[in-house]
Amino acid sequence: MKTPAHSPDAAAVARRHGNDRAALIPALQELSAKGGLTGPVLAEVAQALGVPEAEVYGTATFYAFLGAGKKARCVVRLCGTLSCELAGKKAVAAALERALGIKFGQTDKKGDFALEWTSCLGMCDKGPALLANGELYQSLTPKKVPAVIAACRRALAAGRKK
């Protein structure tokens, strides 16, 4: 089954969260997870909530977990902050790049995976840690990385079947 470029019912999603500005971020969070915040999606949300399009764009791009544009189906965010650095994030980062065949800041050709650095995840006692589509993986080592990516691939496959 082909997935559409963006959720066709962005306006409906937005309205489900409310009819004013306070609904904006929850709506953007949901739509971001459903393919990304492309221009047409942002425009629909702006119209549905009565918020200027520029402000919708400004709000989306302010937050590290949102941002404008298409989004990989699984965004892998490795914590880059000091505790995880001391715990060995660099070796884990290299293992992630090898496993996915992309560098940090890139998305793979299929649009399945993106690799990003993120600020302190609050898992400092169990670092290095990463979030993959909100799912937490902690106490990572380079050896554990292939299993993490395999788990992400299974989650993506399960999502496609739905």
Binding site: D20, R21, A22, A23, L24, I25, P26, L28, Q29, V51, E55, G58, T59, F62, Y63, A64, F65, L66, T118, S119, C120
Partner: peptide
């Protein structure tokens, strides 16, 4: 739910965020 912004721990930034703003 926040969306990844350290500054939102500052109380007035946090309120802006709840209101749907940067």
């Amino acid at each position: 739910l926040g969306s990844g912004a350290y500054v939102c721990g500052e109380e007035t930034a946090l309120l802006e965020s709840i209101e749907g703003r940067r």
